[in-house]
Design a protein around this nucleic acid. Sequence first.
DNA 1: GCCGAAAGTTACCAGCCAGTAACATCATTA
DNA 2: TAATGATGTTACTGGCTGGTAACTTTCGGC
Lengths: 213, 213
Amino acid sequence: MAIPKKGNTAFPDRAAQRELKLEALHECAASAFNERGFHGTSLDDIAAALGISKPALYRYVPNKQALLYRLHGISLDAAEAAVTEGEASPADGIERLRIALCQYIRSLTASSSACLVLMEEGAMTGAAAADILARRRAFEARFRKLVSDGIADGSITPCDPKLAVFSVLGAGNWVSRWYRPGGARSGGDIARAMSQQLVRGLAVDPSRYRLEG
Amino acid sequence: MAIPKKGNTAFPDRAAQRELKLEALHECAASAFNERGFHGTSLDDIAAALGISKPALYRYVPNKQALLYRLHGISLDAAEAAVTEGEASPADGIERLRIALCQYIRSLTASSSACLVLMEEGAMTGAAAADILARRRAFEARFRKLVSDGIADGSITPCDPKLAVFSVLGAGNWVSRWYRPGGARSGGDIARAMSQQLVRGLAVDPSRYRLEG
DNA sequence: GCCGAAAGTTACCAGCCAGTAACATCATTA
DNA sequence: TAATGATGTTACTGGCTGGTAACTTTCGGC
C-alpha cells in the first residue's frame, strides 16, 4: 500500500497525486500566510516554495481569495472536531472543556497548514467572510456552552463565560505564533500542559489539575 | 491651560499641534495595521482616514517601515512599563505576576494605537527587526522571572515558566483581536478579570483569586 | 503687512503582483 | 502509436502602492 508507483493502474494514480500536491499546497500556503500574512505573501512565493511556477497554482486553486477561504475552512473543520470531542465526553463540564481545549491546541500544532490561519480573517470579502465569521462565532458559542454547563454542574467557578472563553482560546490561538515543530516539547505535550493550566484557573476544585504533568 | 488657542504665543503652538497630529497618526496607523495587517494597509488608506493626502504623511514619518518600527517601540514601552510595575511590588511572586499581567492587558486596551501592533513582527527587516525582537524577548524573560520567583517563594505551583508565560501572555495578546472600546466591559475591568483567572491557574492557593470580581 | 518656514497638494514614476494567454510536455488509453 | 487531457512553462498586462518632485497655502515672528 505504501507509495503508489506511477503506471500502476490499480490505483487512481493521477487523482492521488493531485490530492497529495493539493495538500502540500495548503500546508505551504498556510505556513506562509501565518508567517508573513496574507497580503505579505505573493503567489510567486508560494509557488517558489513548492518548486513550481505561479500559473501552475491556478490548476489547483481558482484565485488567492479562494485559497484563503479554503484554508479557513480546513482550520475550522479541525476546530469543530475538537469541540465535538469535548462535548461527546460523559465527564462533567470542566473536564469536557479541558478535552475540547486540549484537542484544539493539539490540532493547532499538528498541521502547519490546516490550522495556523486564524489570522487574516479581515482579508476575506463578501460571502466567504460572512461564512467563516459565522462558523467561528458558532465554534466560540459551543465553547461558551461548555463553560456555562460547567458552572451549572458546579465544576466551574461562576464567571463570565464570554471572557473565560476568550482567555482560554486566546492562549491557545497564540500557540500558532510561537510553536514550531521539532522543539523541546511535542505538540500533544504542550496541549496537555496548557489546557491543564488554563482550565485550572476556572475550576471549583483546582486540585484536580496538577501542572507539569 | 485647556486647549491652546492658535496665535497664543505663550504656547509653542506649532509644535503642540504637530505632536497631536503625530499621535493621531500613530493611533490611526496602528488601528489599521491591527485590523488589516501591515501589508494590507496602504499609506493612502491611513492618509484618507486622517483626512490628508499621502505625501503629507511623509512630513511625520520617513517611510512605512519606520512607522511600523515606531509603533512597535511605543507598544513595547507600555509593555515594559507594565512588567516594571509588577516587579516593583513588594508582594509575593504570584501577586507581582498578576499585577504585571493586569497592567499589560490594561495597556493593550487603553490605546488602539500604542499597543495593538503585536503582530506583523515579520514585516520588519534588518536592524529594526532585531531590535524589536530583542526587546520582546527581554520582556518575556522578565515575565518568566516573575514566574520562577513565584515558584521559589512557594506562591506558584511548580511548572514550566516558559509555557506558563506563553499561555498567560497569549491570552492577553489575543485581547487586541476582539476588544473594541465602548463594549459592555471597560478595559480595566477586562484586565482585572482576565489576570485573576489566568493567574489562578498557576497559584498554589487558588482561593486567593476569586473570579467575577 | 511681509517674509520664511512649516504643512499640505497634485502629478507622477517604478516595481510588484494577481491573474491570463499561448505554448510545451507528459502519461494514460484506445 | 496516435489521440487526448492533465500538468506545467514562459511571456505578458493592468492596477495598485511606496515613494518623490514641484508647487501652493497657511501662519507665526518681525
